[in-house]
Design a protein around this nucleic acid. Structure first.
Length: 522
DNA sequence: GTGCAGTGTCATCGA
DNA sequence: CGTCGATGACACTGC
């Protein structure tokens, strides 16, 4: 630092602020960085927990390949019982301090609700004591776990759903912590922010203790939904969502690009058709694209209101936290996931350039499939697209479809056909390009061959000329006149006529009437 | 940030 | 005149 001070005093540009060289300052920054890092890790951990919980709520329908919510339990187990037990456990542990030793208590718990293995039970992943989790318990995770798994699992398994969410705390510490934190939890988790999920309150309590919030009204509607607020799974279920709270949402949002749309829709292209009786409409392309681009907002609503099969990626893209806060977050999908989605969406109808049906349905529906489902089209998109005209018309006549459905079906067929046509067109174009390239290659090869042949012929011609010249000289040298003298090559030359006769022609003579000799059969 | 390739869609044309 | 396939053009997306 002395050196720095000296240099600084000498007004030397250090290339950095002077504080950079202050070790205290650097330490502070380091601590700050460390703290931020910890917070980030904490946040990531919470997100992972949420994802895990969400996935746990879904099960893959092997028949359709769709992710669907887990069916409600066969036995009418009371919702919110388990969280209540958590609370009771908390209280129980408090009381247990007086009446029962901790080990005894654990033993009783494990006897009543046996854990998978004792080894697992001793690992931090399977904490036996719910009190351990409570201080920094993730309410969203708990909501999800409670609303699904707890319906048919033992409390011990419920505890297992909290696994790994916290650093392990010694039991005794946990007890102490619980005693301090439990009251706070009661207010925070059952308060407005979390809709009383963690500490379920009876319906009456719920309605009376809240402040008339929208969620609370919903919760008061049905006891079965008491524990579901922002992450109401049943609102996402295929059947219930259509029947329940949003019966006319389809009419508000659906808009077909075939011109059947709500009043005044800018996307209407068929002014003759405005609103149709059934109150079902479809999304326009632009709207659908917007939903695709905003999975966290519009698409989730879309999935909900149209009773679509909701998929993990979409489901998770709808950030529960944003729902809690009421602020839609532009949470982007992970690039990989997005890529997968695109691939799925595009690969769905792929079999490009062929009319083969897709071999296996993907989880994700194409937009036309979504539209068809939204308008309850009674046949598949594949049928709509690939049936022959007669069969298609017959199919249309068999079903009483309203105008919107007919328009959508026609649009789907047109788009599907055109998609295949475009794929075929591009394939042909590519084939043409490849064919032309091949033709170009073969033409180049032929050109090279001809050039080579020309070269050989030139060479051969040259040799023949040389041979001819030799022969000429030989013949010329053998010629004699009447006196037996040889002819001068400067005065005479040999020429061959078209009929094959060879003549001895004087070179310089203007007139060759007397000089011309006829040499036959040379 | 830009260019490119792939794809879906629409408009249009001709059969 | 409606349907259908072909194709250019455009928009969008991912690399």
């Amino acid at each position: 630092m002395d050196l720095i001070d000296i240099l600084w005093n000498q007004d030397i540009d250090l290339g950095a602020r002077r504080e950079v060289f202050d070790i205290n300052h650097r330490q502070k920054e380091h601590e700050l960085l460390k703290q931020r890092k910890l917070e980030e890790e904490k946040r990531l951990h919470l997100m992972r927990e949420q994802e895990k919980a969400l996935l746990a709520q879904l099960q893959l329908d092997e028949e359709t390949g769709e992710y669907i919510p887990r069916p409600p339990p066969s036995t009418p187990l009371q919702l919110g019982v388990t969280p209540l037990e958590v609370t009771q456990n908390g209280d129980f542990t408090q009381e247990a301090g007086d009446s029962m030793s901790f080990d005894e208590e654990v033993e009783q718990l494990t006897t009543t609700y046996p854990l998978p293995t004792s080894a697992e039970a001793q690992t931090p992943s399977y904490p036996n004591y719910p009190t351990v989790q409570t201080p920094i318990f993730n309410p969203l995770t708990s909501i999800n776990n409670v609303t699904t798994n707890n319906l048919n699992v033992s409390p011990a398994e419920l505890m297992n759903t909290f696994d790994g969410s916290l650093p392990t705390v010694a039991p005794s510490d946990a007890f102490r912590q619980m005693k301090v934190d439990a009251p706070q939890l009661d207010t925070s988790f059952s308060g407005e922010g979390f809709g009383g999920v963690f500490y379920p309150i009876t319906e009456q309590d719920e309605c009376s203790s809240r402040h008339g919030q929208e969620e609370n009204e919903r919760m008061c509607d049905s006891p079965s939904k008491a524990a579901f607020t922002h992450m109401d799974l049943y609102s996402l279920s295929p059947v219930d969502s259509m029947d329940r709270s949003k019966p006319n949402l389809t009419a508000e949002h659906l808009d077909s690009d075939s011109g059947v749309s709500t009043n005044g829709s800018p996307n209407a292209r068929s002014p003759g058709i405005s609103v149709y009786e059934s109150g079902s409409f479809s999304y326009s392309d632009s709207e659908m694209e917007e939903m695709d681009q905003n999975p966290g907002s519009a698409e989730s609503d879309y999935s909900e209101m149209f009773s679509l099969n909701f998929e993990p990626d979409h489901f998770m893209a709808s950030d529960p936290a944003s729902e809690v806060t009421g602020q839609p977050q532009q949470q982007e999908k992970k690039p990989k996931q997005r890529k997968l989605d695109i691939a799925e969406e595009r690969g769905l109808d792929d079999a490009p350039f062929t009319k083969d049906k897709p071999k296996k349905r993907s989880v994700r529906l194409t937009r036309d499939e979504q539209r068809a489902k939204a308008l309850s089209i009674p046949f598949t998109v594949d049928m709509i697209i690939n049936l022959p005209v007669d069969d298609f018309n017959e199919l249309m006549s068999k079903h009483q479809l309203n105008e919107a459905q007919l328009a959508l079906v026609r649009d789907i067929r047109r788009r599907g056909k055109n998609k295949v046509a475009a794929q075929n067109c591009r394939k042909r174009k590519m084939e043409n390009i490849v064919g032309l390239e091949g033709e170009l290659d073969s033409l180049k090869e032929e050109r090279d061959r001809l050039l080579n042949e020309k070269s050989k012929n030139t060479k051969s011609l040259k040799e023949m000329k040389q041979q001819l010249n030799s022969l000429y000289l030989e013949v010329f040298s053998m010629l004699r006149d009447e006196k037996g003298n040889s002819y001068s090559s400067s005065d005479y030359s040999l020429q061959q006529s078209t009929d094959g006769n060879v003549f001895l022609v004087p070179r310089i003579k203007k007139t060759f009437k007397s000089e011309k000799k006829h040499l036959s059969h040379l």
